[in-house]
Every structure is written in C-alpha cells, then in structure tokens.
Design a protein around this nucleic acid. Structure first.
Length: 561
RNA sequence: UGUCCCAUGGUGUAACGGUAGCACUACAGUUUUUGGUACUGUCUGUCUAGGUUCGAAUCCUGGUGGGACAACCA
C-alpha cells in the first residue's frame, strides 16, 4: 500500500498564520473568534466562516471563542442565540469561551469617554439625513459638522445624557473626529454611538440607551479578548483602516489583533441573505427556519445533511480574495460522497404498481437478506419479506419498451433486487388503458446466492411486499430558487423566482417494514431514487421521509432515453 | 470622475520565477444484483498590451473587466 499522505495545499490564511507563527507575532499566540450577530439562524455561508475560525485554532494550537455581536437590540433575540450555539455544536466545534459584545458595554463606554477627553470624538445633534448629506459621496469629499468643535466638557455631558434616557432616539450621536475629506468614506467622522430606547436588549434590558456601533465595538472586543486573527468576509475590507485606527487609539501593549478578509460563500440557485430568509419564514412561504429547503444549518440538518458532508463541502471550496459563485452541484456531490459511504440501503416504492408472480405459492413468505450498505464493510444486513404479490415502481414496467430500456417488459427477464430473476408474462389494464397489474413468473433456481443466480439479466428492480410493506409519506425537495444569480436580480422581487415545485409530497409510497424502527437521525438510500432521512415529525404510525438529494443524474438519463 | 480589493477551463481552486495541476459539471467507455457506486478517458484555462528575466500565471507599468465603500445595520 502506498503511503496515504494527501497534502492539501494551505489556503492564504493558513499560510499567513504559519508565517505569523514563524515570526513570533503576538508571542506566537493564535486566537480567533466566530462573531455572529444573533439576528437570524446560521446558514451554509456561516459554516464556511465557522470552519475557518475554529479550524485555524484547532490546527495551530490556538483557541476560538464564540462572541455574539449584540450591539443592536432592535434586531436581536435569544431565540437566535440558542440556535447558533446548537448549530455550531452540531458541526462538531467547541468554543473555548462564550462572550457577548454587550459584556463590554462599560469598557467601551469608558474608552469612548477617553476619546472625547482627547478631543477625538464629539456629539452631533444633526438629523441622520443631514449627517448623510454631509458625508459627501465616494467621489466627493464631505463637509464638517457644525458641532465638530464642541468643547470637551459639553461633549461629556451630552454623552451622559445620551445614555440616561433624556435624549430621544435619533436626536444625537457620538462621532469620532477623523477626516471628513478622507477618500475612505468610513473615516468621515464615523458614528460610534446611537440611542436605542424602544427595544430592550436581550441581555441588558433597558440598562443602556446608548449603544456602540459595529466599527467601534468589533475591533475593541477583539482587543479585549486577545484575538490575534480577526477573520471576516470581503465586504469589511474597506473597514479595516478604521478597525486599525480605533486599535491605535487604545492599544497599550505590543499585542494587537489583525483583520483579514476572505470571500463569502455564494451558491447558484440559493439565497443566502438573512433578510430574504426572514421574509420567507415570516410570510409562511417555508415552514420555518429549519424547513428542509432552507440553506440554514438546521434546514440542511432536517433535510438529512450530515456534519461530515458539510465539512466535505467546505474543504472543497477554498478561501480567496475574490468573489465567485459555487455551483450547487458541488454541494450535492459532497453530500452524496458522504451518504454513499455511510447511508444504509432500503427499499421503497414511490409510485406503486402491483406485480403478481403467477407461479409463486400463495401465502408463502420468504425472508430475503439485504446488505445494509454494499460500500461499507461489516455494516450488517437485514431481511425483507418476499411474497407472491409485490409492489414495484410503475416506471419499472413498460408494455412496449424502447431499445435502451433495461427494466421489466413483456417477455423479458429482470432481477428483483436481493431475490429472484423473473420473466414478465403480461399485464392487466383498466378501461382507460392504464396498467393496473403486471404478471410474471419467477425462476426458483435464481434466488440470490444460488449458482443459477449468476445468469445475466439486463436489469434489476426494487420491490416491497404488498402484505408487509408500510405506507409512508415521501417529501421530495428540490431547489427553492430558479435564478442563476440572485445578486443580479436586486431590483426584482425574489419571490417571483421561487420554484413552485420545490416541495412535492408523495403519499402513495410503500416502504419495507424494516424502516419502522428507523431513528430520525438515520439516512437511507432508497434504491435508484435518492438519499432520504426520516423527518423529525415522523411517528411509528406515520412514516415521513425527506429527500436529502437525488442520485446523480439517474432520472434525467432515463428521460433522455 | 475618488479609495480599497481582485482577475487561471463552463464552475470552484492549486502552482509562491522553472512541465499550468486537482475537484465539480458535461460527454464517452469498463465493472456492477438497479442506469447508482467505483475506475478510465475526452473536451475546455493563465483578461489585454508592453516591460524585467535564460525563463513570467507568478515581478513591474498602462489598459480592460469585476467587486466593496455614501445604514443612527453587522
């Protein structure tokens, strides 16, 4: 055997970390953080950031903390705090510590006071519109606020009032005094604090009325915690100079955090915007954040995706400095790769038609052995009852078959998976010409394992016993979105692009009795149909299966032939 | 008439001055108790024009193209 040393090339962030380690930056310490705002559920895009933040810490002997960036009570909720923790754990990561930006409100306040005393921040009483107007545009410099030269003592007094409740929302803000003519818009006296009184903070209630803004709070939070590598997505690139500016104002040691940006995940046919996902949930277009059509972690989980599959996917896509759009087929491939290796095989007939073996003894039941997973060693097997009357897929029989049809047709032989070779003798039709029953004769010498069973037949089909099989509901999920790239559809209502067939519920399905005992974390491959898991709402009396992903191309090819 | 970031097959990435490689997709073929899986093969790429160099995807310059920035969001 050859040595199994698949050396993955390091991404640019890993290279940077190794360089920092070699040069002893920040005393060779590695510390990252995953900093979600608790204003929605985590989705597959967050998984990319999570794998990076936690992965870097894990691989380089550092630590990664979970920090909730909860500086805007108007949008945040404990529901999200809980789900975020659950999803990170499900992905297989543990944070060293759990922090909240709201834990730093006092420290941030004190530093803001220091900045005011240094003459580097002032209270502006203009309206939001006026301030926006004075900011200028990316190509035109801004103009200075008339309040910019307000005396320090007055600034301090007003800052206190901002937090005491005496000041109405929108009446005043604290701004850093930097440069209204800077080519970087973020340097044009950025807002550090605003007043929010009408929403309680999910942790501090109404204790604070003045809340810090992201640009001020984020870098300082990193600094307070000792973060060495502050990894975020590309859209924060232009914020980095400001991040550094704030650090420069307060850093009092050799240590400092550094921000590095990487590309956000985009997937074809998939919406990754929290705002749009919230809309889908609130308007009842989906059944909730964990609807299996959602790209949320919990939606993917409910659909039967495994953590291994998601890691598999993240490993394939890479981290770069430019935006791209990943083909959803890469995600589906990553899932199939894991499921093919680990999911048990089971028999289910989605669209049943009766097959009667005319020469099989009435009332006889044979237990046929089915290997749980032919791709996996020592995974065991189970038995499926075989009888005279079976259900097969309606699609698996054709009275007049085209040349490349490999399944059941009159006069031809086919194998019943795990059982006998049969020869089709005829069928019965109703007054409309629809086939209602198919007849065949079985060859007793061809049971799986018998010497005669090696005979070549053109196809193999799956089946379940009429008497023993169980009714089940099968939910076939498809892509929710049709647009190739929703970013290009900004001005259009994205709901127009929803795929109306994204969920097809099939209640005719019949499954083998073994599946009654299936736990809902279990994944199955239904023969030639796809990978399924048991829906959490499933009960022993009502079996419900969700399709994780279909088998590669099988139906499409069939249609072509 | 700005600042910052970026540009490798259809898609996603690697090559760190020395043979443009990998994966996905698509299309063929082999194996197969499902047309799945596995394996093999084929197609397709360094945005452009200069420069430096024995040698450039890589370094430099100019174009072109894309993205981010004008929330009291993060």
């Amino acid at each position: 055997m050859e040595e199994n040393t698949v050396k993955r090339t390091l991404n640019f962030i890993e290279q940077m970390v190794e360089k920092d380690l070699a040069e002893g930056r920040n005393n060779g310490r590695i510390q990252t953080r995953f900093p979600p705002e608790p204003n929605g559920y985590l989705h597959i895009g967050h998984a990319k950031a999570i794998c990076l933040d936690f992965g870097i810490a894990r691989n380089y002997g550092g630590i990664c903390n979970l920090r909730f960036d909860d500086t805007n009570p108007a949008k945040e909720d404990v529901e999200y705090v809980d789900s975020i923790q659950e999803d990170i754990k499900w992905l297989g990561y543990e944070w060293a510590n759990i922090y909240y930006a709201s834990d730093y409100f006092q420290q941030l306040w004190d530093l803001a006071v220091k900045l005011i005393k240094d003459g580097k921040a002032y209270i502006d009483e203009q309206s939001a519109e006026t301030i926006a107007k004075q900011k200028g545009t990316p190509t035109l410099p801004g103009t200075e606020s008339p309040y910019r030269k307000r005396p320090v003592e007055e600034n301090l007094a007003l800052f206190e009032k901002m937090n005491s409740g005496e000041v109405e929302e929108g009446a005043m803000v604290l701004r850093a005094k930097i440069d209204m003519a800077s080519p970087n818009m973020h340097f044009r006296d950025p807002i550090m604090y605003r007043v929010i009184k009408s929403y309680p903070h999910h942790r501090t209630g109404y204790a604070w009325k003045a809340y810090p803004m992201y640009d001020y709070a984020h870098g300082q939070s990193d600094y307070f915690e000792g973060v060495t590598h502050s990894l975020c997505t590309l859209e924060f690139e232009v914020h980095r100079p400001l991040y550094d500016w704030f650090i420069d104002q307060f850093a009092d040691s050799d240590y400092r955090p550094y921000q590095t940006e990487f590309n956000r995940l985009n997937i074809t046919y998939t919406v990754m915007s929290k705002r749009k996902m919230l809309q889908l949930v609130e308007e009842g277009i989906v059944r909730g954040w964990d609807d299996p059509r959602m790209p949320t972690i919990c939606g993917l989980r409910r659909r039967g995706y495994t953590p291994a599959a998601i890691h598999n996917f993240i490993d394939k896509i890479g981290y770069t400095k430019y935006e791209g759009i990943i083909d959803v087929s890469l995600l589906e491939h990553a899932v199939r790769e894991d499921l093919n290796a680990n999911a048990d095989r089971a028999s289910a007939v989605l669209n049943p038609i009766k097959l009667i073996l005319t020469n099989y003894p009435e009332g006889q039941v044979e237990m046929m052995e089915a290997v749980n997973n032919p791709e996996k060693e020592n995974c065991g097997s189970h038995e499926i009852p075989f009888t005279k009357e079976l259900y097969i897929e309606a699609d698996d029989f054709m009275e007049e078959a085209p040349k490349k049809y490999f399944r059941l047709t009159i006069g031809q032989e086919v194998r019943l998976k795990n059982a006998y070779i049969i020869k089709c003798t005829g069928c019965k039709k109703d007054e409309n010409g629809n086939v209602t029953e198919v007849y065949a004769e079985y060859d007793p010498q061809t049971k799986s394992g018998m010497p005669e069973s090696n005979r070549k037949v053109k196809g193999t089909i799956h089946w379940v016993s009429v008497e023993h099989s169980l009714p089940a509901e099968v939910r076939l999920y498809d892509r929710l979105f049709l647009a190739e790239n929703l970013n290009e559809e900004k001005d259009r209502d994205f709901r127009e692009l929803l795929n109306p067939n994204s969920l097809v519920i099939n209640t005719k399905a019949r499954v083998e009795p073994w599946l009654k005992d299936a736990t809902h974390l279990h994944n199955f491959q239904f023969q030639r149909i796809g990978y399924f898991n048991v829906d959490p709402d499933s009960t022993p009396d009502k079996l419900v299966f969700n399709r994780t992903v279909s088998l590669k191309d099988s139906w499409a090819k069939e249609v072509r032939n």
